[in-house]
């Protein structure tokens, strides 16, 4: 998909820092790797008509329709967003995205299942895959959380290392989900509610809600959206943002994710609990409320904007 390929460029300055201890950066790094892999693919898969970003995106959306378990949504329904209450987690989504275009995913679930059966863990699945494929369980394992079977205190079965490891991760996930996983806390903001107004405008209904969650001014976010999308728009009576052009929820989500990366999350501890303040000499600073680090952020620049719209009248 077009967006995935861009990711490394969103914030090139990030990947220059190789410090692995900072999970946020590590995450970025592996995203870059993933994207690099993706970069190579579309050229191979290009089918003439699918070359353009948007078109191919829709094409793949069709292809993967069956696989989108989390968020079934119509390709371009006007009502896709408002009904959806599930929050979107910028980090989680990013991960999901990265995987989607990769080859082994494209093979379908059956392929994965076959791999799991064969005891092979698909690449990139990490521990979760390992857990599914856990081979060496004794016949009567019982329920880990209830403490039956081998987990019963009275049991005399020798607990192997893999078993204990399973126990550790199961307990960790169920009782301390924050500590489990790869160390990143999930940061949740509601998904953008996107409505179509007429044929040429898009309404971003819950922008003020999202801005409140991010603790940023609507104007700043709006400015970023317009600059990135190369468009303009206005705010309507109920504080909804009216954007010129057709945009899908997913596309706005992408831009928002980039906004969060640039202007919200702390790069040191990746906490989203930060403040954006104007510092000395007209620079903007993001100050972290959990670790106290402070970094300056670039001002939003619109850059070049081509004049689109009505063709200039030919001089005769």
């Amino acid at each position: 998909m077009a967006e995935t390929e861009e990711t490394p460029v969103f914030d090139p300055s990030l990947k220059k820092k190789p410090r692995k201890s900072v999970a946020f950066e590590a995450e970025n790094g592996d995203e870059v790797n993933g994207a690099g892999k993706d970069n190579a693919e579309p050229q191979g898969l290009e089918t003439g008509e699918g070359g353009e970003g948007k078109e191919s995106e829709e094409g793949t959306a069709e292809m993967f329709k069956g696989k989108k378990k989390k968020k079934p949504k119509k390709a371009d329904g006007d009502d896709e967003a408002p009904g959806e209450v599930a929050e979107f987690d910028p980090t989680a989504l990013k991960r999901k995205k990265k995987k989607k275009p990769s080859k082994e995913k494209a093979e379908g679930d059956s392929f994965d299942a076959a791999l799991a059966e064969a005891g092979v863990v698909p690449r990139g699945e990490g521990e979760e895959g390992a857990e599914d494929a856990e081979p060496a369980l004794p016949e009567d394992t019982g329920d880990l959380l209830l403490g039956t079977g081998v987990w019963n205190a009275a049991s005399t079965v020798d607990l192997t290392y893999p078993l204990l490891l399973t126990r550790f991760f199961t307990l960790l996930r169920s009782q301390h989900p924050d500590l489990a996983g790869d160390g990143r806390r999930s940061y949740k903001i509601p998904p953008p509610q996107v409505l179509r107004e007429g044929n040429k405008k898009t309404i971003f209904a819950n922008i003020s809600d999202i801005c409140k969650r991010m603790k940023r001014f609507d104007e700043h976010v709006t400015q970023f959206l317009f600059a990135e999308l190369g468009t303009s728009g206005s705010v309507d009576g109920s504080k909804r943002l009216v954007i010129r052009g057709k945009f899908q929820q997913k596309q706005l989500e992408n831009v928002l994710r980039r906004y969060i990366l640039e202007y919200v999350t702390c790069r040191t501890c990746k906490s989203p609990d930060t403040d954006l303040k104007k510092g000395e000499n007209r620079l903007f600073f993001v100050t972290c409320n959990s670790c106290g680090s402070r970094r300056s952020v670039a001002a939003i620049k619109t850059g070049f904007q081509a004049t689109v719209g009505k063709r200039r009248r030919q001089q005769t």
């Binding site: 999308l229 010129r244 620079l283």
Partner: peptide, 15 residues
């Protein structure tokens, strides 16, 4: 580090 004016090449899209 971020605000140092780098000579970025910007590739944009417009509808």
């Amino acid at each position: 580090g971020d605000t140092q004016p780098k000579n970025y090449v910007h590739i944009r899209i417009q509808q």
